[in-house]
Design a binder for these strands. Structure first.
Length: 110
DNA sequence: AAGCTGACTATGG
DNA sequence: GCCATAGCCAGCT
């Protein structure tokens, strides 16, 4: 597996419970903010990773659950987020900005 | 092999 | 503030 995917998975795994981040933020942290699509693709292949990947904590820059369809037929992603204390409405995290977790800030600085 | 698609984002009208 | 376009790059048809 490419290091890119590996790093994406590790970053996503380090997202604290009750926090969320965006594909672009992860891509930016890896130094390829223009390849935010690849982060999403990495999530699609997340099942290939031996560890658990909380992909539901990764949404687009709007806090919109664009990838909910990949979790299952129903609104599994929303339920997972609500289970962690998020407020989701119309497939969007209302308090997204308040719970946003930026790896660039949280992991780079320290 | 060439073209399309997609769990994105930024920019311009 | 919404819609269209354009980069991005890996996987699929």
């Amino acid at each position: 597996m490419s290091d890119f995917y590996q790093q994406v998975y590790e970053v996503v795994r380090q997202i604290p419970v009750g926090r969320v981040t965006s594909y672009g933020a992860i891509a930016a942290f890896l130094g390829s903010k223009q390849s935010s699509r690849m982060v999403g693709w990495a999530m699609n292949n997340a099942h290939s990773y031996p560890e658990y990947i909380p992909a539901h904590r990764v949404v687009n820059r709007n806090g919109l659950l664009t990838g909910k369809h990949h979790f299952g037929a129903g609104n599994v992603m929303q339920e997972l987020l609500e289970n962690e204390g998020f407020v989701v409405e119309d497939d969007q995290i209302l308090n997204f900005k308040e719970n946003f977790w930026d790896p660039v800030k949280e992991l780079s600085l320290d």
